[in-house]
Amino acid sequence: MLNRLFAQVGQTALVLFFVSVASFVFLKLAPGDPVSLMLGSDYNKDSYDKLFTELGLDRPWAAQYASWLGDFVTGDWGRSFVSNEDIFRLAVMQALPVTLCLAAYALVLALLIGIPAGVLSALKRDTWMDLCATGVAVFGNAFPSFYLGIVLIWVFGVGLGWFPTLGFVAPWENLLEGLWYLTLPAITLAAWYIGLIARVTRASLLDVLGHSYILAARARGEGSARVVWVHAMRNVLMPLTTTIGLQLGGMLRGAVMTEVVFALPGLGMMITAATLNREYTVVQAGVMLSGLLFVIVNLVVDQLYTWLDPRLRRLA
């Protein structure tokens, strides 16, 4: 068990190392640098050169990367080139909680809507209800999220005035207000996953419903609601968990556009801004965090499998 954990940690570290190298190389290869952005219209060679040197951007790439890595593993994540903000504070203390709240809220919404929609369309397969449920679910992920977000802002924020149009209030400070502020962004983000969850639920429920033990249960005269919710749903949970697991990583990543539209200071916003600013230290911190979350989610999902599937438990 401990060995496996160590192996996992080693593997994770390796993946993250790869991720950091890749993002570093990408940002270095991309034309442009933070200093020209900082100087903007006030560009002049002298100021540029001085700042460039001051920020250590004139050193060879390998040296820049090595010193970043050295600092990073010892807990010094450095400072943003442009704003001089402490990156650890920015990424972990500020951005991460925002994105986690958003993703969690969106996940709950997606499950609350997606599962019933999927069950409905599986039970009423090939009827108009199936088509409707599938249609509604599928339409959710048919619009670019920035567009959906903007439409929601104008309809529910400006037109009806039900929800705030943008901004973030920490739910841990004020739960209700926090959720209220996060509702439109969460719907925007959830829209994509509602369709997905509904589809997976539908497909795997159909799959399960055809199996002999369900037919047997039915033959025994068990009520169909019981059959569905007790016998069948248990087996739907497996693929659903996998999907959610895979997607949760994706959800944190999918938050990019949602955060930009709703001006949420989360990881997506941070990474986007930093990529556009060519701030490799910030991007690396962000991508490492996103990678770490991805790995953690995968580990949790693995654990959930063994818990859900007794066969796997025996194997382990």
Partner: peptide, 24 residues
């Protein structure tokens, strides 16, 4: 698979954005 994991760890949009910046 480690390389694949690495690719998966990137937000798609950011990956595309950065890559596009490199390629032009």
């Amino acid at each position: 698979m480690r390389v694949v994991d690495g690719l998966l760890a990137f937000p798609e949009l950011i990956l595309a954005m950065a890559f596009l910046a490199v390629l032009g």
